[in-house]
């Protein structure tokens, strides 16, 4: 059975729900930095993802790059999650979200309010404020946040029904910098869909996030910048499916000392 068939079989009975919308794939994929539009399209198909992130950027009169990109995404039949990438103030993020809602025709928004240049760490104060404004205005906000529980509580109070803590800084590929923090978040918000967003570099990082009980993983660079993005998309799909299957299977307890796995009873005495 190949990875895609396996995933489809497994996730058919195990969807994740974001704001009332069920999706079978637990991989959310970014659409930036691919070598070509054709490879982007093929990677999206290979990943099995049903949700891709998109952005809004200045359109040039001559090139009209945005129009062909949008056609490509629509032809793939996936849902879009518009982001507010690059926004640094509440006003910028809110206005960008409003423009995205009109353009893409969805109330979903991946809310980013960036506060620091070296780490692209969210400005969590601005994030909470923007989340409150947008939720009141009918948006369904997917906030890009940290693993800080106090911030997370405030985001939920502001109306967020999904939380997306970072694994590591955007584009760093470092994996899960703070597994303890992510585990605490999972324990603290058992009923909220949690998505590790950003910093994932390898399928093993994504599997680890799923093994922590996360509902999904959002990544971009790890696939787009791989030598073979299509193959890497497939690898991530398999890893995320494996991690999800593992958490449902209820892993064994870790112990400090060895415990023989082969039965001791019935062992032959062959020494002198």
């Amino acid at each position: 059975m190949d990875a895609m068939t396996h995933k489809a079989t497994m996730s058919a009975a195990d969807p994740v729900t974001f704001y009332g919308t069920e999706v079978a794939s637990r991989l959310l994929l970014g659409t930036a930095q691919y070598p070509s539009p054709a490879i982007l399209a093929e990677a999206i198909r290979a990943s099995g993802t049903e949700i891709v992130t998109v952005s809004l950027r200045r359109e040039s009169g001559a090139a009209k790059a945005g129009q062909s990109f949008w056609q490509l995404i629509r032809d793939l039949g996936v849902k879009v999650l518009p982001n507010t990438a690059g926004c640094r103030t509440v006003k910028e993020a809110v206005t960008t979200a409003e423009m995205a809602r009109e353009l893409f025709g969805t109330p979903w928004v991946k809310l980013e309010v960036i506060g620091e240049d070296d780490t692209l760490q969210p400005d969590v104060f601005g994030l909470v404020e923007a989340a409150r404004i947008l939720s009141r205005d009918g948006f369904q906000v997917f906030p890009y946040t940290t693993e800080d529980l106090v911030v997370a509580e405030k985001l939920v109070s502001a109306g967020c029904e999904v939380l997306m803590p970072w694994g590591a800084p955007i584009g760093s590929g470092r994996g899960l910098n703070n597994p303890y923090g992510l585990r605490s978040m999972r324990a603290h918000f058992p009923g909220i869909p949690l998505v590790v967003d950003a910093g994932v570099g390898l399928p093993s990082h994504a599997a680890a996030a799923m093994e922590l009980g996360y509902d999904a993983v959002l990544l971009n660079t790890a696939v787009a910048k791989a030598g073979d993005p299509v193959r890497m998309a497939r690898a991530f799909a398999a890893a995320i499916a494996a991690g999800r299957e593992a958490v449902i299977a209820d892993p064994m307890e870790v112990r400090d000392m060895a415990a023989p796995s082969t039965p001791v009873m019935g062992r032959a005495l062959l020494g002198s």
Binding site: L40, S55, R57, R58, E59, K64, G66, W70, N83, E102
Partner: peptide, 27 residues
């Protein structure tokens, strides 16, 4: 933001800053 439906009725004046944004790749 100026909604599509409001563009006909929205006058522009000397020195105005206009942003025209399109769907683009994003993470």
């Amino acid at each position: 933001m100026v909604r599509a439906a409001r563009r006909e009725a929205t006058a522009i004046a000397e020195g105005d800053r206009v942003e025209i944004l399109a769907p683009m790749q994003g993470g």
